[in-house]
Write a protein that binds this DNA or RNA. Structure first.
Length: 214
DNA sequence: AAAACATGCAACCGCTACAAA
DNA sequence: GTTTGTAGCGGTTGCATGTTT
């Protein structure tokens, strides 16, 4: 087991001060991103490189979009989560200005509850056991589009069509295909996602099993 | 008004992947 | 081929704030 990256007792922890933020911003403006381990030494910050990287990526980056998630962003997150599982960085990569941490937090605090309240298991994106008992066995998104359609219609359009440009869609399919596994207990593996036009069954099987599952 | 509880977010921790030596 | 160091990712925690009792 490797030592932690920052075991020095004199390193700061916890919330960042404005002064620390400014030092980090100034340093990165001058030297660019990367070489995070050098930043504490070079800038005089009493933070480990890992902490600097996280602070920059999640909070200080100028291209970050602050504020609430739009409805179409929510929808996209839900769809991508159904496709990719907890691959937060991949999902965030499809949402300009959003970070993996932000998407993850938003999922855990809002979206998973929202799906649960709709009777949908947020983990597997299918009807919860209670509802499923009264339904035919269904797989993947077709669940929400068919068997639970009446349920869905009473709520905001979580599963409505998201318009992606052709190239964006192809890129998504490409990205998604590169990270979905063949876990046969996982309903992602054979799901044809109608909205995104992505046949997950055709995904690369070379990835470690369970990568998109729990 | 105050205590208890719930919620959301920022940050940390541990792990893995990857590259360089 | 092995070792070592760094970057990046996802899970988890802790704290600040808001809400309820």
């Amino acid at each position: 087991m490797r030592k932690p990256c920052c075991d020095k007792a004199d390193m700061n922890k916890g919330a960042w001060s404005q002064q620390e933020d400014q030092i980090l911003i100034d340093y990165i403006k001058k030297h660019g991103e990367g070489h995070w381990q050098n930043i504490p030494k070079a800038s005089g910050l009493l933070r480990c490189g890992k902490s600097c990287r996280l602070r920059w990526i999640n909070y200080l980056r100028p291209d970050l979009k602050k504020g609430n998630f739009a409805e179409d962003e929510e929808d996209l997150i839900i769809k991508l989560h159904a496709l990719l599982g907890n691959r937060w960085s991949l999902i965030a990569g499809r949402l300009p200005g959003r970070t993996d941490n932000e998407v993850k937090n938003y999922w855990n605090s809002h979206l998973s509850k929202k799906l649960t309240s709709m009777g949908i298991d947020p983990k597997h994106h299918r009807l919860s056991h209670y509802l499923a008992r009264t339904q035919t066995r269904i797989r993947g998104f077709s669940t929400a589009e068919t068997s639970s359609s009446a349920l869905i219609k009473d709520h905001k359009p979580l599963y409505h069509q998201i318009k992606l440009s052709g190239s964006a869609n192809n890129q998504l399919a490409s990205d998604a295909g590169s990270c979905i596994d063949n876990d046969d207990d996982d309903d992602h593996s054979s799901t044809l996602l109608p909205d995104l036009n992505v046949d997950v069954a055709a995904a690369d099987s070379s990835l470690p099993s369970g990568a998109a599952t729990e």
